[in-house]
């Protein structure tokens, strides 16, 4: 079931000491994401300038998968345009739903591609997608401003 593959040292490391876990000085949008069924919580902070995610960070508590997934997402989207972030989001959702399985395509997700095997753990999929759903909502909030 690929458990070892999922809990690689990388994930354990990311969740223990995530470099993206802090507050931003001047966020333009701050949004909370929660898994009500299990208690994962993140608060995603973005600074969007001219349709570009100039900076991103998060705070929160939760399982290794939710916390690592958030940190990896931030690594990916920082500096990207909103449109690019949305494309990566679609790619991530496609990977988790196993609609996109081609490793060459998934390479773009960089470290986050390590979460591919979470698709084998249906009970944990919501942990992996929490940050991306929060990003989706945050970008929507930002757009509606």
């Amino acid at each position: 079931m690929g458990l070892e593959a999922i809990y690689t040292e990388l994930i354990a490391e990311q969740s223990r000491n995530p470099e993206n876990k802090h507050h931003l000085t001047a966020p333009t949008v701050v949004l909370k994401g929660r898994n009500p069924s299990c208690g994962d919580e993140i608060s995603l902070e973005l600074r969007v300038e001219n349709d570009r995610i100039a900076d991103a960070a998060f705070t929160g508590v939760g399982c290794a998968i939710s916390q690592a997934s958030t940190s990896m997402m931030i690594d990916l989207i920082k500096g990207k345009t909103v449109a690019e972030a949305k494309r990566l989001m679609a790619l991530f959702f496609g990977m988790i739903k196993r609609e996109i399985t081609d490793d060459a395509v998934l390479e773009e997700l960089d470290e986050a591609a390590a979460l591919k095997n979470v698709a084998n753990l249906p009970a944990r999929v919501k942990c992996a997608v929490l940050s991306w759903h929060t990003l989706e909502d945050a970008l929507q909030t930002e757009k509606e401003k």
């Binding site: 079931m1 809990y7 299990c38 939760g62 399982c63 290794a64 944990r124 942990c127």
Partner: peptide, 13 residues
């Protein structure tokens, strides 16, 4: 140092 979800997943395996 381990979140309960991760514990449950490992026990599940």
């Amino acid at each position: 140092d381990v979140h309960p979800h991760d514990v449950a997943t490992i026990l599940d395996a």
